[in-house]
Structure formats: structure tokens, C-alpha cells
Design a protein around this nucleic acid. Structure first.
Lengths: 190, 190
DNA sequence: TGGAATTACCTAAAGGCTTTAGGCAAATCA
DNA sequence: TGATTTGCCTAAAGCCTTTAGGTAATTCCA
């Protein structure tokens, strides 16, 4: 019986690819086993449960996305940084819809590891770093974090769901104008 | 064999209630049959498939929500209308998380009926009605529809997921300030 | 009003996903 | 090279979906 070389990390990685192909919700332990040409039960040595697998995929995605945000933000500030931040999220979601969906997968905290929490914290910090380019005290800064997160995530979700598909202007045209509007808003936040 | 009085409409209604109790993703034909004290197969006379059931629940929720928005908007304009619109969405999502999730459930267009499409159109029109209180041409108005939809939906999603739970200020305090910020933004949209 | 037609719900069964238990063989290590 | 660990396997139970075909309750209407 040839060994394929399964491991928690490889399963999470392959699971992320599978999610992009068939959708995060359609990722199953069975489908992943099929992809490795292996019996389903074999995966349970590396993954505690289906939820555990999904949590691992979420962690892979959230971490990868934080890396990309950090890279895009290097050397930028103000409006420039805001656009870079927003674009990374949107581009990532379009390139990797399954992984993006995974990042928004809220599982029972029990299966979410510390890596997941750490990646989540990195995202918060990166958004706050962008906001340093604007002059906000508290609680305005927290409000602004929530506004940015909501608008960016909301737009991406609706666009991915096809809500903007059948009308003019294209989703890609509205996007920079909306981010610019947020920039203006942050600049004059009372 | 006593008849329980099943029908497509009753199943959709009961399914909506079930969704609020256990979460939209956890709604299954089996669970619904159990709730009616009836064999699973019996439901398939009234509902084409599990996806069909979910689409019906989505339609119930989307329609109900449009009714509430329309009622709340009556006699209001400008900032007042914007807050009313936003609050109805948020309050509905908090009161009926399962139904709200259902409204965001994008199924294969094949199972989504015309009622669903009609309810979706009503929502668009209601948002545009609110925007009539601001002075926007095209494409600014469409951008604004997308901005409002994204921010409101994004905020609700993140709040429901618990993203705002463990920090100050409370999610309920940020909300009106964010909506006010959007009002300011719309007023001065370039 | 009583028989015919319709309709509501049932049993049976096949196929898929999850998860646990226990086993053999391949890799690793002394 | 023998002992141990570990990777993958078979088997099986439980739950969900969906289809096929049957029986009984209701409705229709002559």
C-alpha cells in the first residue's frame, strides 16, 4: 500500500485548492480523500473532523491574506494605502473565492486554533495601520475600522454573489470610487 | 393516518422558524419532517428538493424584510429615512438571524422563483427611494446603492459573526455613527 | 349521498457524507 | 535486523437526500 504522504498541513493546503474549485461549503472529507486517491477514513488520522478541516483551511487562507495585505501596505500611506488594502482583499476574493469564503467561516471556537486568532489579530492591526494616515481618536478609530471592514467585506460578498453583475457600471468601476469616498469620509470624520 | 396539513407555504414558514432556531445552514428536510412528526419522504410532495426548500425560505424572508423596510420608510426622507432603512435591516437580522442568512443564500437560479426576484427588486427600489433624498446623478446613484448595500450588509454579517463582540464601543454604539457618516458622505458626494 | 378521483402521507431502498474501531504493512530507529 | 511507530485500509453504524410505488383520507359531483 503506497503511502501518499498525508499530513494536516497538506490536507489544509489541498482543501484550500478544492474550496476554490468547488466552493468552500462543498469541501468534504470525502471529496478530499478522493482527490488523494485514498480511503476516507485515512484522513481522520490527520484531521479531527470535518469542522476541523474547514477551520484549518480558514487558517491557511486568513494567514495568506494577511501576508498579502502586509506586503501591499509596505511603503504606502493615506489614500494610497487605503486603496492598496481594499484592492488586496477584493483581488484575493476574486482569485480565490473558496479561500475567501473560508476566512469568513465562523466555526465553534473550539476548533479554531491560536494561529487563526493570530492571523485575525494581524488583519485588525493592518487596518489600524492604514488608519494612522488619518487623524482619528477613539472611539472614531474603532468606528472607522468597523466601517472599512464592513464596506470592503460587504462589497466583496455582494459582488461574488453576482449582485452587481447585471447592471451598469461594472463592479470594477464602482469599486475605486467607493474607496475614494471612504477616503474623503475618513479625512473629514467629525 | 392523520393528515397534518402540509403545503409548500407551511413548509417554507416552518422552515424559516427552524432557521432562526438552529441556523439556516442546519435546516434540512429531515429536521423539518421531524418537526411535523411526519416521514421525510412526505415532504417531497410539497418541495422539490432541499435546495428548493431553502429557496422558498429565502423568498419568505426577503419578502417579509421588504415589507418591513417599506413600512419603516413611509413618511421619512433624508437622514431620517437612511437611519430607518439601516435599522430595519439590522434589527431584522438580530431578531431573525436564520431568515437573514436565508436572504443572502444564493442558490442556483433554477430554484429561485419569480417571487424571489420580485422581492429583490423591491429592495433595490426602496434603497433608491432613500437616495432620492440626496442629490445624485448617474453613475453616482448606483455607486451609492452599492455602498449602502455593502456597508449595511457587511456590518450586519460581521456583527452576527461576533467580530465586534469583544471590544469597545459596543456594536450598537458604532452603528448610528457609521450611518451618520454615510449620510454626510452622500450629502457631499462629488 | 355514495362512489370516483385526487391528494396526503407511508414504507422501502439506494447512494453519499461523517466518524469510530481495529488491522496490516511500510517506514523509522536501535 | 528486529522492534516500534505510523500511515493507510476494511468494516460498520448513523444521518441526510431523493425516488418509486402503495394505502388511506379527503374532495368532488352525479
Amino acid at each position: 500500500m503506497a503511502r501518499v504522504g498525508l499530513s494536516g498541513a497538506r490536507l489544509a493546503q489541498a482543501g484550500a485548492e478544492l474550496a476554490d474549485e468547488v466552493g468552500f461549503e462543498q469541501v468534504t472529507v470525502s471529496a478530499l480523500a478522493r482527490r488523494f486517491g485514498v480511503q476516507v477514513a485515512s484522513l481522520y488520522s490527520h484531521v479531527r473532523s470535518s469542522d476541523d478541516l474547514k477551520a484549518r483551511i480558514a487558517t491557511v487562507a486568513l494567514t495568506e491574506l494577511a501576508d498579502q495585505v502586509a506586503a501591499a501596505l509596505a511603503g504606502r500611506a493615506g489614500r494610497d494605502a487605503l486603496h492598496a488594502l481594499a484592492d488586496v482583499y477584493r483581488d484575493y476574493a476574486r482569485a480565490h473565492p473558496g479561500r475567501y469564503a473560508a476566512t469568513r467561516h465562523t466555526a465553534a471556537a473550539s476548533v479554531l486554533g491560536e494561529q487563526y486568532v493570530a492571523a485575525g489579530r494581524r488583519h485588525s492591526e493592518l487596518v489600524r495601520a492604514v488608519l494612522r494616515g488619518y487623524d482619528l481618536g477613539e472611539p472614531a478609530q474603532t468606528d472607522a475600522v468597523r466601517l472599512l471592514g464592513s464596506t470592503i467585506h460587504g462589497y466583496i460578498t455582494l459582488e461574488l454573489a453576482g449582485s452587481f453583475a447585471h447592471s451598469e457600471p461594472s463592479a470594477g468601476d464602482s469599486w475605486p470610487r467607493i474607496i475614494d469616498a471612504l477616503d474623503t469620509l475618513l479625512r473629514s470624520w467629525s
